[in-house]
Simulated scan of single mutants.
Amino acid sequence: MVSVNQERTPRKRTYLMSPPEHFAVEYAINPWMDTETPVDAGLALKQWEGLRETLAGLGHTVHVLPAEPGLPDMVYAANGAFVVDGVAYGARFRHEQRAAEATAHRAFYESGDWGFVAPSETNEGEGDFAYLPRAYGGLILAGYGFRTEPAAHAEAQEVLNRPAVSLRLVDPRFYHLDTALAALDDQRITYFPGAFSVASQKVLAQLFPDAVLADEVDAFAFGLNLVSDGRNVVLNSESTGLAGKLEAAGYTPVLVELGELKKGGGSVKCCVAELRP
Score class of each variant (00 low, 15 high):
Q6W: 14
V272N: 00
P38S: 08
H105V: 11
N161S: 14
L141S: 01
G42V: 06
V227L: 09
G265E: 09
S18D: 00
G42D: 11
S197C: 07
V268S: 04
V256I: 08
A156P: 14
P38V: 11
V227E: 05
V165H: 03
G194R: 03
L213D: 06
A214N: 08
R168G: 11
A273E: 10
H95V: 10
A214V: 05
G194F: 02
L71C: 02
G50N: 09
E7V: 15
A130I: 11
A180M: 06
D171C: 11
M33F: 02
A91S: 15
R168Q: 15
A152M: 15
E274Y: 05
T179A: 08
A142I: 07
E126N: 10
F222N: 05
F116A: 10
A199K: 13
V233C: 09
V203F: 06
F129L: 12
V233I: 04
F208I: 00
T61Y: 08
P31W: 08
F82W: 12
H95N: 15
N161P: 01
D85N: 10
Q206K: 14
T37S: 08
T54Y: 02
Q157G: 12
T54V: 06
P193W: 03
L246W: 07
L213Q: 06
T14G: 08
D128K: 07
A211F: 02
S166E: 15
A81M: 08
P193S: 03
Y109M: 13
D113T: 06
E274T: 07
V217A: 14
D215L: 04
V212M: 04
P31M: 07
L58H: 09
L226R: 03
Y89V: 07
T148V: 10
L177C: 11
L139I: 04
Y136K: 13
L65Y: 01
A24I: 01
D34E: 11
E158P: 09
V117R: 14
P72L: 10
E96F: 12
R162A: 11
L255I: 04
E124S: 13
S228P: 00
P172E: 15
A78R: 06
S237A: 13
A78T: 02
G266S: 03
L204V: 05
D229A: 04
Y27G: 09
A142C: 14
A221E: 07
R92V: 13
D128R: 11
A104L: 15
G42M: 08
N236L: 01
P72M: 09
E216D: 14
H153K: 08
Y76P: 01
V165L: 10
F129G: 02
R52K: 15
L258Q: 05
V256G: 02
F174G: 01
Q47E: 11
V254F: 05
R147E: 14
Y144A: 14
I189K: 06
V159C: 09
E96T: 15
E53K: 11
S111V: 04
E121N: 13
L226A: 05
F174E: 05
G50C: 03
E110L: 09
A243C: 02
